[in-house]
Design a protein around this nucleic acid. Structure first.
Length: 938
RNA sequence: GCGGGCGUGGCGAAAUUGGUAGACGUGCUAGACUUAGGAUCUAGUGCUUAACGGCGUGGGGGUUCGAGUCCCUCCGCCCGCACCA
């Protein structure tokens, strides 16, 4: 029987954590009691903040003897707007998890830093007219202050800023490693460029090597954004406009640095199977990588030219080759000029001009209408020998496959559309499928009019045709990826300078490691340089370097925002290291990030790039793992709850929402903070803006009721809620618990200030279990009853389960239930309340510490161990009623804890009834809940 | 169009993963204590019915002793991708 062995102390005093986080030598217990017997959250939080800071409570040691846990948040851009209540949501969840794991005895790495380089910081600096270095520092200070308010357990001594030279020195260093490496397709890994030199022999030129380097320079069409004056990566362009600011983006041919991420495409794909990411995010990455398997097939030209004898197409449906009735090239394809007949030249050029003059956006909008133009040239079908006209059309993209396709109108919607529009033949090749209205794109087919494929199904057809194509050397199997190499140059000031020099002939030359960091020069003006160059081009002196008697110029572009964030999780492990980006022995200890919490918007940007960097560093032997994040959680957004008022047109009179249909009104935004729910505080509103000072109001039931809806939290919409205000009013502990209570972490939900009262009330109620407002401490030393232990253990189990699974919302509910139950029993017993204080440590750390002291426990709650859930007790009290044991039972001991004592008589009665009903069939097991039969196993 | 996810009270949401649907919190309604209360406490609160009861997890169908949960189908919403051959 539980409770008789006097082992209760083990429930909470097991100190498996060896290092002492805090010992309150400097505080007498008497002094603590005087703090007041009301829940004085301001004093409590101030006090513990100070103690934690003075004692470096959250300092993390690289103590290799202990099991590790790495809990990471996506670090923020320190923007000028500061934090709103939505930003810390994920941080709170990860902090709870980190604190919980610490109580469980893990050495927990839980750092925070700042992604200080990049476009947003520079744009903000431009807007405010200050130097980015200044605004960044200022913004960071503000972020830091706001974050500290919330009571996070970050080890700030490990903090990184991507814009610090001591940090970007290593960003540049990794860039050089990528530059000095290539992807060996035979070994399927990145290797030092030397192994390529060995293969190519002594005559390998720099130009040739550049075609293999993982960081390489090439001339290519890139996304050029005129308004931002810079190149953007594919993931920074959304629907044809820039992600930042929504400016138009066009294709421009430029010489740029790229990362050869495509070399890792297959591993980025297969690696997804080894990590615990949300399925939707994995799917996004799979789509972005866009692997497709097919074949490249050669179609000889009828009229061969000097340089071109055949058109190479890429297809994923080689099985439909007998349905080819024409071919299509991308309009900008270099072959077009070579094959176009004189008769068609004018028409083709007009079409090419039309296509190239359209913006990305126009082109996207035009997806419904097909257009195209005949080149006059013909190819020969490799199997039938039939002549096939060659067209150009803009639905064929230069950047994918070979930029040329074989058109099968019977099986492809776009080919079908073009064929219909220009009355090209649509050969039927699928038995019994009607293609008079639309093509047939499904794969449940049998072929007809397809020579040796006739009668086969899809699987047989594909296999046969591929064999045949390769046997006749008409082409090869080919895997294609939609993903492109990542543009790595930005014509910007606020980023990492490239550690390269250019000789007079334009050849890049890497700086040596001893020359790092190449510091970003301080510029007075960071406006764009000449000829579409970045601001660094204005730093004339900086840009010229004399070395060993030769003149060099520096790269004036900088690295993109994602450079620094691609490896920061490694720097946290060993942030002070002057000699390496991270010592191998240290990264071998911390290894992967165990839990990474952040927004889904980084799905195809940061998360792909950092996975690629990780793989490259792994291949080159710098780290011992090739996936950076073991588990990823996407927290939802907290949305704004906008409030609207209705002004009668042409007046300064505002009418309550319920009455507005009687008037002609304009709808205006008002501050969310002026409202209690939907009720407007009229006085606050009047004082808001001078134009409202004399405003009048038409009320309903004496109240002004606002309209409202949910949208993005933004200053512009007056729906921003600052965590500082909430914390000033309710305290950090209430704020933390409320954000968790709002709903599941992954789900987006609107902020609602009203609901916070309930959580605050809970903490006050909790406090009253320990201390009475009038009579002071009320903790008792009596032995708890069985019921009281039940309540505690139910809570231990639930908090443990919920915290492990990031279901913080139900964990908070459980705390409320527990406190309600203990209050009802008027339980003030130390042996229940002390472990309860520990259970709360992860969620509401300040009050947890305070309550622990009220229990007159030595040391810090953060040094205690998580209470142990007593399985034995629960097993012995299971209320299942086995008739016979056979196989699986649905009843676990977990259910039994909640059950009231089952009424045995009722069970026996139920059993008799069931046996009657079963008419003698063998009954092996019955399962009861509270005396009611609910399941039998037969 | 393709892919992923979702649909439960006035609202945010629970539901031991197939086992008493709506825990917990808000909101609302009473009441207690109060000079007062935006403090605190107690009770009630899915719909319907005077009551017994009946009906309830987007609609319809199915599997099962039993379905919010599994299957089929329709409807609605959200997110991602979108001429990728």
């Amino acid at each position: 029987m539980f409770g008789e062995e006097s082992e209760q102390s083990d429930l909470y005093s097991v100190s498996r954590v060896t290092h002492i986080i805090y010992r309150p030598d400097n505080l007498s217990l008497a002094a603590i009691k005087i703090l007041g017997m009301q829940y004085q959250f301001r004093d409590i939080e101030k006090k513990w903040k100070k103690i934690w800071e003075e004692n470096h409570t959250y300092r993390v040691n690289n103590d290799f003897s202990r099991p590790k846990c790495y809990v990471l948040d996506m670090f923020p851009y320190p923007s000028g707007a500061g934090l709103h209540v939505g930003h810390p949501l994920g941080y709170i969840a990860s902090d709870i998890y980190a604190r919980y794991k610490r109580l469980k005895g893990f050495n927990v790495l839980h750092p925070m830093g700042f992604d200080a380089f990049g476009l947003p910081a520079e744009q903000y600096a431009i807007e405010t007219g200050q130097h980015p270095a200044v605004t960044t520092e200022k913004n960071i200070a503000r972020y830091r202050e706001q974050l500290d308010n919330i009571g996070f357990s970050f080890d700030w001594e490990r903090s990184v800023k991507t814009s610090d030279a001591s940090y970007y020195r290593w960003t540049q260093w990794i860039f050089l490693q990528l530059y000095n490496a290539w992807y060996n397709p035979v070994n399927q890994k990145a290797e030092p460029i030397q192994t390529l030199r060995d293969q190519l022999g002594a005559e390998a030129t720099e130009v040739e090597l550049m075609k293999y380097r993982l960081a390489y320079r090439a001339e290519s069409y890139v996304n050029w954004c005129e308004a931002l004056g810079t190149v953007l990566a594919n993931d920074e362009v959304v629907n044809g406009v820039s992600e930042r600011g929504g400016h138009p983006v066009e294709k421009k041919l430029l010489s740029q640095w790229f990362l050869r991420i495509t070399a890792f495409a297959d591993r980025l794909l297969t690696g997804l199977e080894t990590v615990d990411f949300p399925e939707s995010l994995k799917e996004m990455q799979r789509n972005w990588i866009g692997k497709s398997e097919g074949a490249e097939v050669l179609f000889s030209l009828k009229e061969k030219t000097e340089t071109l004898s055949a058109i190479k197409v890429y297809t994923t449906r080689p099985d439909t080759i007998f349905g080819v009735s024409f071919m299509v090239l991308a309009p900008e394809h270099e072959w077009v000029a070579q094959i176009t007949t004189p008769a068609q030249r004018e028409e083709v050029q007009a079409y090419q001009h039309m296509v190239s003059s359209r913006s990305e956006r126009d082109r996207m909008a035009e997806t419904k209408n097909v257009s195209g133009c005949f080149t006059g040239a013909y190819a020969i079908h490799p199997f039938t020998g039939v002549e096939i006209p060659i067209w150009i059309a803009d639905y064929v993209l230069m950047g994918y496959g070979t930029g040329a396709i074989m058109a099968v109108p019977a099986g492809d919607a776009r080919d079908y559309a073009l064929a219909t529009k220009f009355q090209l033949p649509i050969p039927a090749i699928f038995e019994g499928k009607d293609i008079s209205e639309k093509p047939y794109e499904e794969k449940d087919i049998r072929y007809c009019d397809s020579d040796f494929l006739n009668g086969m199904n899809y699987a047989e057809g594909v296999s046969r045709i591929l064999t045949e194509i390769e046997r006749r050397t008409l082409g090869t199997r080919k895997v294609n990826y939609r993903m492109r190499d990542a543009g790595f140059s930005r014509q910007r000031y606020w980023g990492e300078p490239f550690p390269v020099l250019y000789s007079s002939d334009g050849q890049p030359q890497a700086l040596s490691e001893s020359e790092l960091p190449l510091e970003l020069p301080y510029l007075e003006s960071y406006s764009a340089g000449p000829n579409g160059k970045g601001p660094l081009a204005n730093a004339i002196d900086w840009g010229k370097v004399s070395k060993e008697g030769q003149m060099f110029t520096r790269e004036t572009d900088t690295m993109p925002g994602y450079a620094g964030s691609s490896w920061y999780y490694l720097r946290y492990m060993d942030p002070q290291n002057q000699d390496e980006f991270c010592a191998r022995s240290v990264s071998d200890y911390w290894k992967q990030v165990d839990v990474y919490v952040g927004g889904a918007e980084h799905a195809v940007g940061h998360l792909l790039y950092s996975r690629m960097w990780c793989k490259a560093l792994y291949d080159l032997g710098y780290i011992g793992f090739d996936e950076p994040y073991r588990k990823l959680i996407n927290q939802g957004m907290i949305q704004g709850n906008s409030r609207l008022v209705y002004r009668i047109q042409g007046t300064n009179t505002f009418v309550s929402q319920g009455l507005k249909q009687n008037y002609q009104t304009d709808t205006l935004y008002t501050e969310y903070s002026f409202c209690n729910g939907y009720e407007l505080d009229v006085e606050k509103f009047k004082q808001w803006k001078s134009e409202y000072r004399d405003a009048e109001f038409v009320l309903e039931n004496g109240k002004y009721i606002c309209g409202g809806f949910v949208e993005k939290m933004s200053k512009r919409l007056f729906n921003v809620v600052n965590p500082d205000d909430i914390i000033a009013q309710y305290g950090a502990d209430t704020f933390r618990m409320y954000e968790m209570f709002l709903g599941p972490l992954e789900v987006s939900k609107p902020w609602d200030t009203n609901g916070i009262e309930g959580v605050h009330r809970f903490l006050k109620k909790l406090w009253r279990l320990y201390a009475d407002e009038t009579q002071g401490l009320c903790i008792q030393d009596e032995e708890p009853t069985q019921d009281e232990y039940k309540i505690l253990h139910k809570c231990i189990r639930k908090i443990e389960q919920d915290t492990e699974s990031f279901s913080m919302n139900t964990a908070v509910s459980q705390f409320m239930i527990t406190v309600n139950e203990l209050t009802a029993l008027q339980c003030h017993k130390r042996k229940v309340l002390a472990p309860l204080a520990i259970l709360l440590a992860a969620y509401a750390p300040h009050i947890s510490e305070e309550l622990w002291q009220l229990c007159e426990q030595e040391g810090s709650v953060l040094n205690a161990a998580f209470p142990v859930f007593d399985e034995q007790y629960v097993r012995e009290n299971a209320f299942t009623y086995p008739i016979a044991v056979n196989g699986k039972t649905r009843t676990e001991f977990s259910f039994a804890l909640d059950a009231e004592v089952a009424d045995i008589e009722q069970q026996v009665l139920g059993m008799e009834l069931v046996q009657k009903w079963m008419e003698g069939k063998p009954l092996k097991k019955m399962i009861f809940i509270k005396g009611k039969m609910i399941n039998l196993v037969v």
